[in-house]
Amino acid sequence: MASQGTKRSYEQMETDGERQNATEIRASVGKMIDGIGRFYIQMCTELKLSDYEGRLIQNSLTIERMVLSAFDERRNKYLEEHPSAGKDPKKTGGPIYKRVDRKWMRELVLYDKEEIRRIWRQANNGDDATAGLTHMMIWHSNLNDTTYQRTRALVRTGMDPRMCSLMQGSTLPRRSGAAGAAVKGVGTMVMELIRMIKRGINDRNFWRGENGRKTRSAYERMCNILKGKFQTAAQRAMMDQVRESRNPGNAEIEDLIFLARSALILRGSVAHKSCLPACVYGPAVASGYDFEKEGYSLVGIDPFKLLQNSQVYSLIRPNENPAHKSQLVWMACNSAAFEDLRVLSFIRGTKVSPRGKLSTRGVQIASNENMDAMESSTLELRSRYWAIRTRSGGNTNQQRASAGQISVQPAFSVQRNLPFDKPTIMAAFTGNTEGRTSDMRAEIIRMMEGAKPEEMSFQGRGVFELSDERAANPIVPSFDMSNEGSYFFGDNAEEYDN
C-alpha cells in the first residue's frame, strides 16, 4: 500500500510504541512475548500442572481467558453494579484439565481477579502490559475465525453469508486497541457500523446529549479505520460520505453494504499476525530463551520457528480426527482463516481442507461434555516452508469459486491468482447506482469489472525454506488448481455463540 510509510507498523501498534527502528520493534515485541511466557509459567505453578498438562491447549485457553477477564475493567465495573446470582464479580476462573488415573478430569478453578492481575503485572515488570493482553485477544479471535462461520451475524446486519472472507476479527472485544483495529476485516468494521446506525434509528437519543457526542466521535473513528483499509480513492470518498452524514440511517447502511461487497474484489488491507497460545510461549521462556534479547516478529519467520520446536497437546472428542484438529489450530496460529487453501497447503506441506470436510468441533470443551471418553493427542503445528504475512489485500483475480465463501483475504505475501467468483459478486451490483453516491458507485463498479483474471497478485513473492531466515531465496510455489480455494466452501461450520 502506498501510504505504508505514514502508518505505524503493526509491531508498533502491538507494543504501543512511538516510531521505533526494526531492532527496537523486535525487542519490544519480544518483551511482550516474554511477559506472556513468564505469566503462563507462574500460572502453571499456581495450578500445580504437570509439564504435559501445561502444554494442553484447553488449559492455555482457560488461563488466557482468566487474565483477560481480570483486566476487563468495563465488564468488571458492570458486574459490580449489576450483581447477578451466583456470579462473584471479583473472581474469575474456568475449567482446568488434569490427568488422573490414566483419565482426563475437569476441575473448575476460581481465583481472585486481583490475584491474577498481581501475577500478570509481576510477570511483566510491574506494568499492565496491555500489548500482551491484546495479543491474547487476537489469538482467540484468530481461533474463532478458523472455527466458526459468522453466517447468522452477517444475515442479521443485512449482509450476504458468502462475504465471510471479510469477517476477520469479528469476535475481537471493543477494547483491543490499535492492534485489534489493524486485524479487523472490512466486513467486521461494516458490521460494527451498521449495528451502531441501527441503534440510532431505533433509539432517538442515541446521537443526542453528552453521551451522543461520545457516540458520534466513536462512529467517526470507526469510519476512519474502515476508510484506511480501502485502497481505492472511490471507496475512500464513499467512506467520507458515510462519516460526514448528519443523521446516519438506511442510506448509510446501503452504502456500507455496497462497500463491503466491493471489497470482495477491490480488497481492503487487513493486517495478519501470528499470535500463538500462551502454552507455546511459556515452555520456550522456561527453556531459557530470551525473546527480548533475541527479538521477535509476528509477521516473519519467528512464529514458524517457534511452532517448529513446540509440543502442544489437545483434548480430542471420541469421533474427532486429531489431524483435522491440528489443521484448525495451525490455521489459527498463522492467522489464515480466509487465505486461499492452495497457498496454505503449499506452505504447510500437507493438504489443507475446507472447514466442512474437517471432523472436528471447536477447541474448547463445553462444561456439560462427558470427560470419560476424552483422549488427548499432539497437535501437528509444523510447516514445510515459511512466508511473510501481508497486510495488503493483493490485486484481484477471477477463479472458480464456491457456493460458500466467494473470495479470499490473503494472509501471506505469496504470488498467486486470487480466487473470487466474479459473476456471483457482480450480480449483486445491478441497477442500484442512484442517489448521492452514484458517481462513486459507478466508478467502483467500473474498477471491479476491469479486474483481470490473468493478473498475478504479489508478483514474484515466494515462500522460503525454514533454514532461509533472511528470506534470501524465494520459492514461487505451484498450486494444484483442481483443489478448492475457499475454506468455508459450501460450508456447515458451527455458528459462533458468545
Rank of each mutant, 00 (worst) to 15 (best):
E220Y: 02
P95D: 12
L259K: 00
Q459T: 12
R19F: 12
Q235R: 03
R461A: 14
I316N: 13
M137N: 01
P161E: 00
R102G: 13
E494S: 01
K351N: 11
S262H: 07
Q398I: 08
F39C: 12
N417D: 03
Q231T: 02
A234V: 13
D16P: 01
M43G: 05
S383R: 01
S9T: 04
I444L: 14
S274Q: 00
Y487T: 02
P410T: 04
P89N: 05
G485M: 07
K357E: 14
G200M: 09
D480S: 14
L154W: 07
G212D: 11
S457N: 15
S478I: 03
V190L: 03
A373K: 07
G490R: 13
E210H: 01
S274P: 03
A427P: 10
G158Y: 07
E192R: 10
D372L: 08
S262T: 08
R400I: 04
E46I: 11
L306F: 03
S407W: 07
Q327W: 05
K113W: 11
G94R: 06
A471V: 00
D145Y: 06
K87Q: 06
G93D: 08
Y313L: 07
D127Q: 14
G5W: 14
T23W: 06
S176F: 07
R243Q: 06
E484N: 03
G435W: 14
D34L: 13
T157K: 04
E192P: 05
G200D: 05
K452V: 12
A178G: 08
R470N: 01
V414W: 00
L256P: 07
Q399W: 09
I475A: 12
C275P: 04
G228M: 11
R261T: 07
S141C: 11
R236Q: 04
S287P: 08
S274I: 07
G288D: 07
G169W: 08
I301F: 10
T215I: 03
R118Y: 11
K184L: 07
A332F: 06
R236H: 04
Y97L: 06
Y52E: 13
E114R: 01
E114V: 00
G54R: 10
L154C: 12
Q399N: 00
V270P: 01
K113S: 13
K98G: 05
G30D: 01
D128E: 07
L133A: 10
I197V: 13
Q308T: 03
I116D: 05
V280Q: 00
K31L: 03
T62A: 11
S269G: 06
P453A: 06
S326V: 05
